[in-house]
């Protein structure tokens, strides 16, 4: 395992909110490593620091101390603009509440990240072709011009999955991706994530639901801002290793 590419490596990261006496440590020395092609769940009660960790892993904020290497690059000291660039090129988000732009077609929602790719500006046609392929893949052929309010929750989340993949990210982060869905739609989304995983995508999923977490290869449980337990869920890990080796 150790010869594989490390996508995420955190070294003793902390996150402290507030100043002086009233400061609260949301993360208190978290060191984790996630390798390319892994499907990992981060679990914990509310207040355990899992959201804070997700924000740092997703480059939405930076740790107070410690280091975070994303795909080999130290991103723990980057400024706002640099973080935006990293999010744009390396990370795909799937949120609990889909977070699609209202009154904007599925196609435009999927191409949105490419709009902000300053390092590799693409033509609209190029972006559209790629987005259409991804919408095909998530099973929304023929609905590319639908706006979010014309789609079911499950369909909206599939648009979000397509959006998360448009920039070929090294890491897909799911924040309770099935939290707002009924069990059938939730299952569809989990199947979709399994498909992505089988294709070699590295996925980190934050959840408080043990049943959902059990879908993954490994569950990292947080408690009071620290890693509590790491559970290997056993299935599919080997298979993926062989496939991506």
């Amino acid at each position: 395992m150790s010869d594989k590419r490390k996508i995420i490596e955190t070294v003793d990261i902390t996150k402290v909110y507030g100043m002086g006496d009233i400061s609260v440590a949301a993360l208190n020395g978290v060191s984790i490593t996630i390798e390319a092609g892994e499907f990992v769940a981060i679990m914990g009660q509310s207040g355990s620091g899992k959201s804070t960790l997700m924000h740092i892993l997703g480059c939405l904020s930076t740790p107070t101390s410690g280091q975070y290497f994303l795909d080999g690059e130290d991103v723990s000291q980057l400024d706002k603009v640099q973080l935006a660039g990293v999010r744009n090129r390396k990370i795909g988000f799937i949120f609990q509440s889909y977070n699609l732009l209202a009154r904007t077609s599925a196609l435009r929602n999927v191409t949105l990240p490419l709009l902000y790719d300053h390092s590799n500006p693409r033509s609209l046609e190029e972006a559209d072709i790629k987005a259409e392929k991804l919408l095909d893949m998530v099973g929304l052929t023929g609905r590319i011009n639908h706006q979010p309010h014309e789609l079911s929750g499950g369909q909206q989340q599939r648009v979000a999955v397509a959006r998360a993949l448009i920039n070929d990210p090294v890491l897909v982060i799911g924040d309770e991706p099935t939290g707002n869905l009924d069990s059938r739609s939730g299952e569809e989304i989990m199947n979709l994530l399994h498909t992505l995983h089988a294709q070699g995508t590295t996925i980190v999923m934050v959840t408080h639901d043990a049943k959902i977490a059990a879908h993954t290869q490994r569950t990292i449980s947080l408690l009071d801002g620290k890693v509590d337990t790491v559970t290997h869920n056993g299935h599919s890990q080997k298979k993926v290793q062989y496939e991506t080796a």
């Binding site: 935006a84 999010r87 732009l101 949105l112």
Partner: peptide
Amino acid sequence: TREIGIRQAVGATPDD
């Protein structure tokens, strides 16, 4: 605000 957050999440810089 939400829209701005979404755009930021997918990589919009403050300048954008």
